[in-house]
Amino acid sequence: MEEIKNPVMDIIAEANRSATSGIDAKDIKDWITISIMGRAYKVPADLTILAAMEYAGYKFVRGVGCRQGFCGACATVFRKKGEYKLQTGMACGTRAEDGMHLAQIPFTPAEKASYDLTKEPYSASVLIKYYPEVARCVSCNTCTKACPQDLEVMDYVQAALRGDFELLATDSFDCIQCGLCALRCPSEIVQYHVAQLGRRLYGYYGLGVPEHLKKRVEEIEKGRYAKALDTVIAFSNDELRKQYVGRDIEPEQ
């Protein structure tokens, strides 16, 4: 197949290279101005919000993780130039745009309930018992609008309220626990904690233990992997790194 040349991608690649590989600023062609927590910064165009903030001098110790949109650590809120809507996203996966106002939301304070799944009934009352604020949901749908994973958050909170564990578990399955829903919720619900409890109850009571897992646990208990594990434990750091880098990776679906 003939390779399609996209000049825009070249420009993005060039800008990224400039920002991250120490190329002199005079060689960067395109610049934008963004406002980080109320202060204007000139940064190379076409960076992610995370890279743009780092270019501007911010150093992240917490509030950053995989840098690939999976871990949910670098939650961000922003308004684009001339728009009133407050938008949300992952700083590592959202492109900075000229005139954007932004700030990082590294964490949404929330208490996680402590429970023993095996001692709870499989009933909606468990969710109300540990998170009674679920009943405060007014179905405004702000959480759904805030979700960077595009989940139907309000629908799963409502499913939690009425004890529909299957819908709760499936609708919340791709949650990365970034906390943006909880931050935006006018009813102060911590959606992702509720969903986690719901998924655990659904997994434990609703689905039961799958056959392949039972089989694998038996194998482990019989010592089938003991020798392989001993070998890995005995590796030097260098050997371990080499094995890790050279491992088989599942192909992209």
Binding site: C137, V138, S139, C140, M154, D155, Q158, P186
Partner: peptide, 25 residues
């Protein structure tokens, strides 16, 4: 097929619209 809370209880405040969103959805 998909539904949310009815929005109960009916909001009695004249200036309050947000609490009717659930019903209307």
């Amino acid at each position: 097929p998909r539904w949310n809370c009815c929005g109960t209880v009916f909001s009695l405040a004249a200036d309050d619209l947000i609490h009717h969103v659930a019903s209307i959805r």
